[in-house]
Design a protein around this nucleic acid. Structure first.
Lengths: 205, 205
DNA sequence: TTTTGTATTAACCAAATGGTTAAATTAAAT
DNA sequence: ATTTAATTTAACCATTTGGTTAATACAAAA
């Protein structure tokens, strides 16, 4: 009785992710998703009832996909500075040419903050990572300055993700050619970890 | 023959700015703009021909409004560090509770980068500000480290604007109550200028 | 006061869009 | 082979939406 629906459902999800992340909830068209998936528009409703539900599925998937890799790095056993470098490397490489994912998240959460409720506990575990434990220890021992974990994390993410979000404006203002862009991202990968470390290492000691 | 159309046109622009900056080009509805302005929908077309043209007027206005205050600060005669502090103060105060403006710009430019073409020369003059002249001089004299102006500016804007863009997620992850939020923004105003200065001052000298 | 051109409105239109339905196809179970 | 249930499609529907139009109100010029 069960036909291989995994295939169709999978194709829908893939197409929906592509269209929703580029156009957002409001800008996406059900017909475009159907075309992208190579199926009839009615199938979208057959599998997901409504645009809202299909969107919700994608939004949660994207959201849940954005943090695990971060948490993965934060739990590595490598040097503190290397973990920072890994974060910058990861997000820069993943999104410097895929700006739609971070913009999608920022924008859609702004449009409807209630959507965040669904993740709840999932993200709280950032505090419990090796990264933050090591950090707090080194603050205790006086090796690191007592900057709050929130500011530290915001600084890392800001310096990494902001240039991705704002890249069209930045490259316009600071007239940047293709080679210049490539160089800019490489410089960031070195500069940001350096900068972060400089701001937390206690030179007194 | 000329009636006081300034009033109606002004009301339309004001309403359009409010709706467009919150909903974006795709999400805004002409009817909602008309309601907001308290006029008939046909008037929108009478004064601006199409949604596209009305939007274009607003987009350019918002864009042109975003930078002048920045350039104003960059040209002040105050201490270098104070100028950085002024930038952080300005954007934080202006947008910490008005997140839609920066999100609108980021998102709409991402949706249609060609819109940026219209500003062209206007923004190029960032290089010619007192801020950058002073910066380059102090790099020459060895007082400042030779960080590229682009990275410097990106760092300042990133540390200032990113937490505004991402504020719903950040306050969710780092469970923050209203008092905590207030404190967070105040801490940023102090922390960011400090951080920026630390990264450019040449301690060798 | 009449004329003239502008400003404003209500009613309307065509296209787009999310969603539905009834019929047809397909695959498995009996 | 027949029944049964899931899958897929084409045609259709109601609503929304940007945009138009024809008629009206209005202020200034003659």
């Amino acid at each position: 009785m069960v036909k291989e629906n995994k295939d169709t459902e999978g194709k829908i999800l893939e197409a929906a992710r592509k269209v929703f992340t580029r156009k957002g909830m409001g800008g996406a068209r059900m017909q475009e998703i159907a075309d992208e998936a190579g199926i009839n528009k009615a199938m979208l409703h057959y599998y997901f009832r409504s645009k809202e539900r299909l969107y919700e599925a994608i939004f949660q998937e994207v959201l849940r996909n954005f943090f695990p890799s971060l948490i993965g790095i934060l739990n590595k056993t490598s040097e503190f500075k290397d973990k920072v470098a890994d974060i910058v490397e990861l997000y820069t490489e993943e999104f410097k040419d895929n700006t739609y994912i971070p913009i999608f998240l920022i924008n859609e959460i702004h449009q409807n903050p209630a959507r965040l409720d669904a993740i709840g506990s999932k993200v709280g575990l950032i505090h419990d990572t090796a990264f933050f434990k090591e950090y707090m220890e080194k603050v205790q021992s006086g090796e690191f300055l007592p900057l709050s974990p929130m500011h530290l994390m915001v600084n890392i993410l800001a310096l990494t993700i902001f240039p991705i979000l704002a890249n069209p404006i930045l490259f316009k203002i600071f007239e940047t050619n293709p080679d210049g862009k490539k160089q800019f991202w490489e410089e960031r990968k070195i500069l940001v970890p350096q900068l972060i470390m400089e701001t937390i290492i206690n030179k007194q000691k």
